[in-house]
Write a protein that binds this DNA or RNA. Structure first.
Length: 947
RNA sequence: GCGGGGGUAGCCGAGCUGGACAAAGGCGCAGGACUUAAGAUCCUGUUCCGUAGGGAUACGUGGGUUCGAAUCCCUCCCCCCGCACCA
């Protein structure tokens, strides 16, 4: 037979599914299932790692259809936020790395001729978004996803803006939209906020804002403060001196309240973006301060200002306070000074920690660090910090704070210092960074940032209640979600730039992109209908009516000038599909998207519309390594069909790992899977034109195969239903293939073709969620209908036959035993004698098979005393083979025990055994020269082989 | 440090509500069948010992509970993730 052209098959069925619109979901039908997966962000192509989540989602959708549910599986595109905008800006400016990257991206989809033209169109963000949205739709179609595309939308469409506005009005009414200060990364050159995609290498090493604490030290001979910045304000008790870089420039600035601060010139500039009133007075050289003294703020000691080369004017304030007992830099800098100038300053130890005498000194000696130019000082600092933070305790030097772990007291010290007006806040970037254009990145503080306040108790209570009522798979994430709800507090929800919906309560702000992706699943239920309405009609009362059931259609109809029947129709659609029965996504979303998803539903929607279940699959790696564009090891989803074949990719996703495990994409494994898949295809092909076996002609082996198959089918449906797709897949593919292989050995290739025909249709149906294309192809050779919209067959339980399976297992075990003997004895069999256990052995066997405890063994032994093999030995042997349980386990059947007419089975299979061993087989003959007969126990005949 | 997840054969990876476990399945490797050959496919083997279906040793380490432990409890070692506003 001609090999199947899988590529052709994929194309054919994808085209027909689309033409016949078989996945368009319309309301109606008793059972509905609404599944959602995250909408992709359209800044670039998706890769096979992303595909795992969508593929598993599709497998679930397809399985639910088999179960008879009316399934809605929709898709949309996420465009909101800064990345797409940043990309467009970069391309408009002609930045080479970005242009090169997008050349590569577009080359995935387009011929070289068009690449340049398309990239140049990317100066406009909407072109980027539309291009990739279209390509990703194509990718998804090519993956065979059973999506209802009519409901597609993107997050910058006017109707979506209206919907998000409505959401924020609902939250505002609940009083959870608030204002406050907030630090952001900011470009001085661009005069705007910058995100990961604006920053040079921002995708490789993220830049975050770090809160430093500034501490004021009054100069003895001036009306000014030297202001030091620190990440460890709790060490203020151990300060011995200040550090200044003599080569740096410092300035005196007047801050709000009329104080004069001295900080580095760089820090003064940053302060200008972080505080409201800053006035620069005069500039001074660093060395000007050397030898001066300052007062320590809390204990009023006089300490010197010294010189240190490690102080960087562009980090913090350019002034550092020295805690040589606990800071390796300070310790080493003092050592340098002592050697050079004979300065003697004794460290003040303020933290007790097991394993250290004087931590900074200890670690420097341990690591062999000798001067402040040593790069390992950074590592030493990290190590000490981690140790002290978690294990260290402030000692008696620290007054009221003594005796408490740093981790528990750090913030209290900081707050106390702030309260005493000693400390203030200064933000710094987590590393030095520049924009892709080369402009310096600093931290600016927005004075009136908008937040969502997740702290109200009523809200958290609702969130917990919602989670309690949900299913999570893997289950462990449920407890985790409760924790996340507890620590969730304030979250910025609007920003100054990016694409998205205008913030309804203040001009100039855009709703931030995670905050606009929380309840969008509701949009899927009505998106295709909203398209028919003018945008003006999508008012607050419109959404109130549709989603919350407020008001009535007639009144609304007049208000927004839309026919009431249309309004009712829209509402019906929402009422039918909502809630979201399953959200399938990945664990990294737990502490952001998913918790917002749940909390916003809890706050806005009626409890009957709360989400039902969340399933999460881990990531995909490739050849043991994380996939990332910087490593260059990503495979675009668009290439899957060409490189591997879609069904094989889907199969890999389904059976390579459970949801809870990372999938490792290995070429070697895809190759192995391809061979398996080909075998499967050949099996299908070989049976479509063959006549199935009639019940009247069933042999024992036929019944065995059918029994195995339907038992596996039954198990697999249960596992599928519990999202254990991997187990179901392995069972229905690998295990069934093995059964069939065994069957063929036992019977013949011709008969195998016929028996496979018996199970073919049911097999195709259960495999169709995972490998829909091949199943659709074969199905159409048998039926003029789509397998994708079939329902599971009535389970043919009548074929599940314990006795038949037991007999076969018995035979397999016997053959194994005989082979074992032949191997050990190294003989060629001339004749094989088999002796089955006598009746009295069966009696004992029955008597003890389900003993609740060992005591009854004595009872059983009374049944008979035998002088060949003592009953005691016999019972022991039986016990061993039976693996009797101390307590009868209700969950697992003891399948080691079963009733069997051994002699009958052996007689029936004598011919098979004869073939198998190429010699005569004698059953229960009196001839027993070696006395083997006595070794027979039930289900394990004695064997005697004659050469 | 706290919280969560792990450590199973040459590799990947099941099992882990205690008993069917020398341990599923796959890969790799070795031998065989088929083939002019290669590939594909199929069979057999893949801890050690054993001329009768057996025995010994094994699931990070060291203990414990039990008739019985990869599975339960405790010690220790090692790896991964999170630890707070950050997308």
């Amino acid at each position: 037979m001609a090999a199947m052209n899988f590529k052709e098959i994929e194309d054919k069925w994808q085209r027909r599914w689309e033409e016949r619109k078989i996945f368009d979901a319309d309301i109606g039908g008793v059972k509905k299932f609404f599944l959602s997966v995250p909408y992709p962000y359209t800044s670039g192509p998706l890769h096979i790692g992303h595909g795992r989540t969508y593929t598993l989602g599709d497998i679930i959708a397809r399985f639910k259809r088999l179960q008879g549910y009316n399934v809605l599986f929709p898709m949309a595109f996420h465009v909101t936020g800064t990345p797409i905008l940043a990309i467009a800006d970069s391309i408009a400016k002609g930045e080479e790395t970005v242009v090169a990257r997008y050349n590569d991206y577009i080359a995935i989809y387009e011929g070289a001729a068009k690449v340049k033209e398309i990239v140049s169109s990317f100066g406009k963000p909407e072109n980027v978004a539309h291009f990739f949205a279209d390509r990703i739709s194509d990718d998804f179609k090519r993956m065979g996803y059973s999506i209802d595309w009519r409901r597609k939308f993107n997050t910058t469409e006017p109707m979506y803006n209206k919907f998000i506005e409505w959401q924020f009005k609902k939250l505002y009414d609940k009083g959870v939209i608030t204002k406050g200060k907030y630090p952001i990364t900011y470009s001085i050159d661009d005069k705007s906020a910058v995100g990961e995609d604006d920053i040079e290498d921002g995708d490789i090493t993220k830049v975050t804002t770090i809160e430093h604490t500034t501490i004021k030290f009054k100069l003895s001979d001036m009306d000014s403060y030297l202001v030091a910045a620190t990440l460890r304000p709790e060490t203020i008790f151990g300060v011995t001196n200040l550090w200044i870089n003599p080569a740096a420039r410092y300035v005196k600035v007047k801050v709000g309240g009329g104080e004069f601060w001295i900080v580095s010139r760089e820090a003064a500039e940053k302060l200008g973006y972080q505080r409201e009133e800053i006035e620069t007075m005069e500039e001074l050289a660093g060395e000007y301060f050397l030898g001066k003294h300052v007062k320590t703020p809390i204990d009023d000691r006089e300490v010197p200002v010294l010189s240190a080369s490690f102080v960087d004017a562009d980090v913090g304030t350019g002034v550092v306070y020295s805690v040589p007992a606990h800071a390796p830099y300070d310790y080493i800098a003092l050592e340098d000074l002592r050697r050079a100038e004979g300065v003697e300053i004794a460290p003040i130890r303020i933290i007790d920690i097991e394993g250290y005498e004087m931590p900074a000194k200890d670690i420097c000696e341990q690591m062999g660090i000798e001067n402040q130019a040593d790069e390992r000082l950074e590592e030493a600092t990290q190590r000490i910090y981690k140790d002290e933070f978690y294990r260290g305790v402030l000692n008696e030097v620290c007054g009221d704070f003594a005796g408490v772990k740093i981790a528990a007291i750090k913030d209290a010290v900081k707050d106390w210092l702030k309260g005493e007006k000693i400390a203030d806040v200064f933000y710094e970037t987590s590393r030095k960074a520049v924009t892709r254009g080369g402009g310096k990145v600093i931290v600016a503080v927005l004075q009136d940032q908008w937040f969502i306040d997740y702290t109200p108790k009523w809200w958290k209570d609702l969130g917990h209640k919602l989670v309690d009522g949900m299913t999570f798979y893997p289950d462990k994430y449920k407890a985790y979600m409760h924790d996340i709800i507890d620590w969730l507090a304030f979250r910025p929800c609007a920003r100054k730039r990016g694409l998205g919906t205008e913030f309804p309560f203040e001009k100039g702000w855009i709703i931030e992109s995670l905050s606009d992706s929380t309840i969008y699943m509701a949009m899927y239920t009505i998106a295709h209908l909203l398209r028919q309405l003018p945008v003006d009609a999508l008012t607050e009362s419109f959404f109130d009516y549709v989603f919350l059931g407020l008001g009535d259609a007639e009144a609304l109809s007049k208000a927004i000038n839309v026919d009431a029947t249309i309004l009712k129709r829209i509402k019906d659609e929402y009422e039918y599909w909502y809630p979201n029965d399953l959200r399938h996504t990945a664990p990294p979303h737990l502490s952001n998207h998913l918790v917002f998803f749940l909390m916003h539903h809890a706050a806005i929607f009626h409890a009957s519309k709360w989400p039902k279940a969340i399933t999460l699959n881990e990531l995909m790696i490739r050849e043991g390594r994380k996939m990332s564009k910087s490593k260059g090891n990503v495979i675009p989803l668009a290439d899957v069909s060409e490189l591997y074949g879609v069904d094989i990719y889907r199969l890999y996703c389904a059976i390579n790992a459970d949801f809870a495990s990372v999938v490792n994409w290995r070429e070697q494994d895809t190759e192995a899977l391809r061979k398996r898949f080909n075998t499967l295809a050949e099996l299908f092909e070989g049976s479509v034109d063959v006549e199935a076996l009639k019940e009247a002609e069933f042999t024992h082996t036929d019944r065995w195969l059918l029994s195995k198959f339907y038992r596996r089918l039954q198990e697999s449906v249960e596992r599928f239903d519990a999202f254990r797709i991997r187990e179901a897949g392995i069972n229905m593919l690998f295990n069934v293939l093995n059964d069939i292989r065994y069957y063929e050995q036992r019977e013949s290739a011709d008969r195998r073709k016929r028996i496979v025909r018996n199970i073919l249709e049911d097999w195709l149906i259960i495999l169709s969620p995972i490998v829909p294309h091949i199943c659709e192809e074969v199905w159409h050779k048998l039926h003029d209908s789509f397998i994708s919209v079939q329902t599971l067959p009535e389970l043919k339980v009548e074929f599940i036959d314990d006795r038949v399976e037991h007999e076969e297992a018995y035979l397999v075990a016997l053959i194994g035993d005989i082979k074992e003997i032949l191997k050990i004895a190294r003989i060629k069999p001339g004749k094989i004698y088999l002796y089955t256990a006598e009746n009295w052995k069966w009696e004992i066997f029955r008597a003890i098979k389900d003993l609740p405890d060992r005591d009854k063994i004595k009872e059983a032994m009374k049944i008979r005393k035998d002088n060949l093999l003592s009953t005691v030995d016999f019972v022991k042997q039986v016990m061993k083979n039976l693996s009797l349980k101390k307590k009868a386990l209700p969950k697992k059947e003891n399948t080691l025990y079963f009733e069997l007419d051994e002699a009958e089975v052996l007689a029936r299979e004598r011919e098979y055994l004869t073939d198998e061993f190429g010699c005569e087989i004698q059953i229960n003959e009196a001839y027993d020269p070696k006395g083997k007969k006595r070794f027979a126990i039930p289900l394990k005949p004695a064997i005697f082989v004659v050469e």
